[in-house]
Amino acid sequence: MSEVIQVEELVVTYRDPETRAVRTAVDRLTLAVQAGEVFGFLGPNGAGKTSTMNVLLGFTPAQGGAARIFGVDVREPIARQRIGYLPELTYYYKFLTAEELLRAYGRIFGLGDAEIRARTAELLALVELESARHRLIRTYSKGMQQRLGLAQALLNQPDLLILDEPTSGLDPLGRMKVREIILRQRAAGKTVFFSSHELGEVESVCDRVAILHQGKLRALGTVAEVSQGDAGRLEQAFLRIIGWENPAVAAAK
């Protein structure tokens, strides 16, 4: 199986705005995501998940190491030709309609007009925004904007879907929709790479997971492998790996 994402000894640092000290967000991270798998990228807040994703998406330069998508250095724009990205906070150009937004993004991907029209109709039906396609996005609810986000992430029929906390703030119906899309992508042989705090979701869809803590990779493997020592409970494993100790247990000790 070929590797869709390759991260080697990745180092990301930033300067603390208050103290001006250099802090390490990602510390020599190495991992690989195989084609066709659903990969969960986990960690507490500040673990380095967003920094890693920012490097993969070209938002932030790395201070060390390398990252490649489909064998192409992530610094090259062409590396993003075959990916779809759904950010955690879904805001789009309020002065556009859903149709106009998808058309603009379609043009950026180099799709033809006919293909853009076909894909737009298909995706708006998928995310149930057909009736609102001609309304300005500024009139959309949060849920509608998130559904639009899904549509734009799937526009170019991506081989790799990168989702940043895709179910954050969604109701159960919305979460189900996202789960369906992830599973459909896997069934079609596509790769999904997503970060999430919803460990229940991760357990139900992921083939493999990686757990980050304080910029370092603490665990990597299937859900079963990672939670082997915790009676198969991923949440328990997660808390153990990041070093959290039950206060009652700590007091007893």
Partner: peptide, 17 residues
Amino acid sequence: ESRTLFTLLAKPVSRWQ
């Protein structure tokens, strides 16, 4: 501010473009 920058630059768009 509106974070549309990230969605846009996550597409195959170089900074120069």
